[in-house]
Computed example of a mutant assay.
Amino acid sequence: MEKVRLNNGLSIPLLGTGTNTYGKEDNSYNGELNGDYSALQSAIALGYRLIDTAISYRNEAGVGETVKNCGIPREEFFLTTKIPPSDDYTKDKETVRQTIEQSLENLQTDYIDLYLIHKPIEDEEQLKLTWEVLEEYVGKNKIKTIGVSNFTEEHIKQMEAFATIKPAVNQIQSNPNNWNDDLIKYLLKNDIRPQAWGPMNATDEHKEVLTEIGKPYGKSWAQVILRYQMQRGVIVIPKSHNPENQKANLDSLSFLLSDEDMTKIDHLT
């Protein structure tokens, strides 16, 4: 598994798996929890070690139990979860502490590799106190890395007034429908690693172009997207319930796109 270095010196896998529909009826985000984590078990068996969940996914506990019981040492995994930007979780410092402790309990772990603020907290004082508690837990070594999700450049600049630890990751939308190029360039310039959610959302027209690019490599349009993102420094967390597709996503690590093909994809709209 390829890894990249974060601004705190730790390394994170360049490719992982999302989990927002795992353990749910009809593999639906809003489906009732049904305890079926076979898709995550399959991903782990294939070699996925970056596992991305969130409190709002409602499946932290199921993800934690699956990782705990898989027979692979905890230190081989990079577990990510996220705190929602609402009073239920970020009203005050004690509430944030309780939220983090619940995540640790749900994930059945002594530490969390990456804890993100799931969406911008528009109240600056609430954002400040949430970040200060996250920094506190880094100091306790209960969280290894802290970051944000769906933050704009302006949101990140706002944090400079109070953050003593710079965000290491910003998890954002990035796919052919919206590459988010300007934000990604800003993040990379400032040593904040971009991570793409929904990396394979694409139109049929996009898929046709990407399929043609992939033919000389013997790769699919989806593998081309993932390779493109990784080559430009973006961590990707595709998600599939199908073991064959999970394996194919991992196989995007096995080739390199030419500079010419990277430029073609740069201009894909």
Score class of each variant (00 low, 15 high):
P199V: 04
S240W: 04
K207M: 13
D52A: 11
R193S: 05
K119Y: 09
Q231H: 02
T66F: 08
I213V: 13
T90W: 12
E244A: 05
N34F: 11
E132C: 09
L104T: 01
D181Q: 14
N245Q: 12
S103H: 02
M1E: 09
D92K: 03
G147S: 06
Y57N: 05
H155P: 06
F77G: 05
K264P: 02
M230Q: 09
I12Y: 00
P216S: 04
H118G: 06
Q173K: 11
I146Q: 03
K157W: 03
T152W: 04
H241P: 04
I225Q: 01
N7M: 10
N180V: 11
T164N: 15
R193P: 00
G62C: 04
A202Q: 14
L40V: 00
Q126S: 12
I72S: 08
E124V: 15
V138Y: 03
Q229C: 06
G198Q: 09
N106F: 06
H206Y: 10
T269L: 14
Q41I: 06
T263R: 14
W221R: 05
F255E: 03
E154V: 15
T99G: 15
Y57L: 03
R5E: 12
L33M: 11
P85V: 09
L256H: 09
L116M: 05
I143C: 02
N34W: 07
N59S: 08
I12C: 08
W179T: 04
N201D: 07
E122M: 14
Y48H: 05
E122V: 13
E122C: 15
L104Q: 01
S28H: 14
S56P: 11
V4K: 04
R49E: 11
K142L: 15
N8D: 15
Y111K: 01
V209P: 12
S252H: 00
G9Y: 03
L134W: 01
Y22P: 10
T17D: 03
G35F: 11
S28R: 13
A39Y: 00
K189G: 10
P167G: 07
K140N: 08
Y228H: 08
K185L: 08
E76L: 11
